[in-house]
């Protein structure tokens, strides 16, 4: 394999990491509060707003049920508005972020809902404000589950990022399609797949380890 190809693979890996990191970071930052809202705004909950809850839920579902490749194309005007371009790695970050937000939000919602209701009641009985309950109880108790949610989100993002080659997004997926498939270079395809597998493995095991460290529920005396 030529050094040029290795350079290409190296650059593609960096592109993928950059896309995943930026889209993951912004997506989680926006998805987290949305997820918390979804989990706490039902009738009789901390921030009761059942109608807004339903509306947000609807938007989240709509975004999640749109196939990613269609989302990429559909939001091109928005992408251009944000980044000034509709092609390239920078442009690819926009649809990746948009897809991450609802994905992560739903996982956050599930993680928060999983916190024992008794803890919310105990905190209310202590005179906690709803915000204190979110920060001191819900987020603290859900930390292991949130860590796993973020892990799952990043792994999905790595998968999604392979599709943004369609808009010239670059990255490993793009390389695999253009060289491995279209130019029929199976060795490139193989390396791309191996790098992706290693990436996913690293993310998953780091996430698992972190979640285990945060989880104090199963310690034995």
């Amino acid at each position: 394999m030529s050094p040029d190809l290795l350079m290409l693979i190296g650059k593609a890996t960096l592109d993928t990491l950059r896309m995943v990191a930026i889209a993951g970071f912004i997506g989680a930052l926006i998805g987290l509060p949305i997820g918390i809202f979804l989990a706490t705004s039902g009738r009789g909950e901390l921030f009761p707003a059942p109608n807004v809850n339903r509306a947000v839920g609807l938007i989240v579902n709509a975004t999640r049920s749109t196939p990613f490749i269609i989302l990429v194309v559909a939001i091109i005007p928005f992408t251009r508005l944000v980044t000034g371009t509709s092609i390239g790695t920078k442009a690819a970050i926009v649809p990746l972020t948009i897809a991450t937000i609802p994905f992560f939000a739903r996982l956050v919602e599930a993680a928060i809902r999983d916190v024992d209701r008794g803890l919310i009641e105990a905190a209310r009985a202590m005179g906690a404000t709803p915000m204190q309950i979110v920060f001191k109880v819900l987020l603290a108790e859900a930390r292991p589950a949130l860590t796993l949610a973020l892990t799952m989100t990043i792994v999905s993002l790595i998968g999604y990022s392979a599709m943004v080659g369609a808009v010239g997004g670059g990255g490993l997926g793009d390389l695999g399609i253009r060289y491995g498939y279209q130019r029929f270079m199976p060795d490139v395809m193989l390396i791309v797949v191996i790098v992706l597998i290693v990436l996913v493995q690293l993310v998953q095991s780091a996430g698992d380890r972190l979640a285990r460290r945060f989880d104090k529920r199963s310690r034995k005396t």
């Binding site: 008794g118 105990a122 109880v137």
Partner: peptide, 10 residues
Amino acid sequence: FQHFNLLSSR
């Protein structure tokens, strides 16, 4: 409380 309702993370 009956089920103590302690925070497992603290």
